[in-house]
Design a protein around this nucleic acid. Sequence first.
DNA 1: TGTGAAAATTTCAAATG
DNA 2: CATTTGAAATTTTCACA
Lengths: 157, 157
Amino acid sequence: MNDSVALDPVDLELLRLLQNDARMTYRDLSAAVGVAPSTCLDRVTRLRRSGVILGQELRLDASRLGRPLQALLSVQVRPHRRELVGPFVERIRALPESRALFHLAGPEDYLVHVAVTGTSDLQRLVLDEFTSRKEVARVETRLIFQRWECGPLLPPG
Amino acid sequence: MNDSVALDPVDLELLRLLQNDARMTYRDLSAAVGVAPSTCLDRVTRLRRSGVILGQELRLDASRLGRPLQALLSVQVRPHRRELVGPFVERIRALPESRALFHLAGPEDYLVHVAVTGTSDLQRLVLDEFTSRKEVARVETRLIFQRWECGPLLPPG
DNA sequence: TGTGAAAATTTCAAATG
DNA sequence: CATTTGAAATTTTCACA
């Protein structure tokens, strides 16, 4: 299921608004896009069911949750075979420090975005969860100074 | 304002639930955490005002929005001075292809997460928006096979 | 897609422990 | 003083035009 879905300007506007605030009421959406609230509900329900909308999440301040340091870890998993990478992915996803995980084409197989309490926590994480593992051939750590979210995701013009 | 906030188990449970579904009703939250709906509203409002909750966003399927290819671009900006990097950041954030932007410690100054329509779109993006720029000294492109979100962000145990 | 009414939820002031 | 209660205001939702 990788098909693009036909989206008219109303759908796009609804997505754009909900990307800014996923808790906007159908009444407010209605006022903003100029169709009835019931139609907004209908549109959004359709977008949810069709899989365009995968979910709605909170954006949290990691610093205020006691994880002021973020980093990206490049990881080489060798040999890069299914029976090793499957468990590796699940293990990394289950770490409380992991925020996101990318499987990449290229010599660095994985990129892990982590949020930690500080440098010693990061060191522990790298040593205990990555370099100590047989399947992990190499890890490179990059600290994140700052992160920005970019504009809403919309279909190419 | 980088202070951690004191969060009790009820706050944590609310955050955990809302991270899965930011549109859960206060009534359902109430049933799940065992305090009155009005208290849930109060707690969540407090979490919003205190800045722990930064916002609530949709998670969308980039493929279904016509951007089936994602990549990470490592970018060196030279010289790495404020008067150059400020405009660079704003320009990158404004690109419709940009999803997220990281400022990193290390030889690769920035990492840009992009979603594009295909390889030719990616090529165009790299050539027109990155390598053609004076301040961009180097770009490395890594394709993303797959991306996973990880568990909810919670304070360290 | 819109209307309108019923059901459900949000929200707030007052009461409670 | 945080929490609940209970009722009013608002929003969601659905049958039907």
